[in-house]
Amino acid sequence: MSIIEVRDVKKTYPLGKVEVHAVKGVSFSIEKGDFISIAGPSGSGKSTILNMIGLIDKPSAGEVLIEDRPTSGLSDKELTRLRHEVLGFIFQSFNLIPVLNVWENIEFPLLLGRTKVSQAEKKEWIDWLIAEVGLGDWKTHKPNELSGGQRQRVAIARALVTKPGIVLADEPTANLDSSTGEQIIELMKKINRELNTTFIFSTHDAKIVDVADHIIRLKDGLIVENRRLNGADSMDQVKE
């Protein structure tokens, strides 16, 4: 069973009088627990696809299914609720809430919607996450007191706090130096193994692509490669 299925999705942006065909019809599926890299040159449509999977943008045509649920007919409110329940987000520029400290930033998603967890359970879980991302000593610091790598660790913990099935990360390492970027990817990979969370991240960096066990490569809004690695069960080659 695929946790995500993308069916012939297209995305067209109006740009003045012309239209930009950012994604020209792509189909693929993602299995539970995958660690997927969406690769491709700048402008190839990586962010556009991640946004549509993340339900923060709508396809112009086609369908995105999340845990077998079609999403095209959903209202903004339902999409928001679905994002909150099944998706986690990691951003290129970290996007922490500046007025909240590390602990509060991680807690934030738990205060939304109707998540029912006991106070003690919540505290234990957040503390576990903070230890997991290695920020035990930084709980009460504000984002502007942290380095880029530390901020991205907070963001990872925040993305995981609601125990989502899928975490989306659009170029999570682009604002970090390469060794910090590798550490971040390592951390994501570790969590992927431990919690079996599906990670989908986009990147330019060839070295980071290699960590993935499933690569989807884009060019000009089309898939040019869709490959499962490390003895993964399927290996679809590209039709072009």
Partner: peptide
């Protein structure tokens, strides 16, 4: 604007 986008992505509703 970035915070608004972030919050919305994380599950904050429009009316919130």
């Amino acid at each position: 604007i970035k915070e608004i986008g972030t919050m919305r992505a994380l599950g904050v509703q429009r009316k919130e």
